[in-house]
């Protein structure tokens, strides 16, 4: 890293090293919480644990509903994959040399945007189709919405850097 910094210094491109954006740090923290949230539901869905501790709602009934899988893949596993990807992107994205990287900003916005849409569908299913709520699904919907909103400044920053 030091060598890279030194090279940059020699080339006079210090501007490329933007300070680590707070919003991206927040994304990493939220994504890590999402990883645990989705991992817990995935462990239940995959039979690793036999029950869910659910203080609000009917988590197990929601997890056993037909809508809890998409093309045979548990929705919680898809969520886990998305959060792991977001965490990895955010961890790379907080590094000064990648803070203004357009591809990372776009990837975070795209993944979280798809997540928001899918969460909206799942929330609709809970409210209008199965009439049951799962607290971990609600937590996930909130997390992904926050991540999406926090990704927007990064996108703007990347566009500004490009232009």
């Amino acid at each position: 890293m030091s060598a890279v910094l030194d090279e940059a210094e020699v080339d006079g491109v210090e501007e490329a090293y933007a300070p680590p954006p707070t919003s991206r740090m927040a994304i990493a923290v939220l994504a890590l919480i999402g990883v645990f949230d989705a991992a817990y539901l995935s462990m239940y869905k995959l039979g690793i644990i036999n029950g869910l501790t659910c203080t609000v709602g009917s988590c197990e009934q929601v997890q056993n509903s037909p809508q809890s899988a998409l093309f045979g893949i548990p929705v919680s596993v898809l969520g886990l994959g998305a959060y792991v990807a977001l965490l990895a992107l955010a961890l790379v994205g907080v590094q000064p040399r990648f803070a203004a990287d357009r591809r990372i900003a776009q990837a975070i916005t795209a993944i979280s945007g798809i997540g928001v849409l899918f969460s909206a569908y799942l929330t609709y299913v809970e409210a209008r189709v199965i009439y049951m709520w799962c607290q971990y699904c609600v937590i996930s919907a909130i997390l992904i919405t926050l991540i999406f909103l926090l990704s927007l400044p990064g996108l703007k920053r990347a566009r500004a850097a490009d232009s």
Partner: peptide, 23 residues
Amino acid sequence: LTPFYIILGLVLVAGLGLLATRL
């Protein structure tokens, strides 16, 4: 980045702890 890593580490430990109690 140090405060960020500290917060992330705390979340990691808390999350692993919670999962362990569930397991």
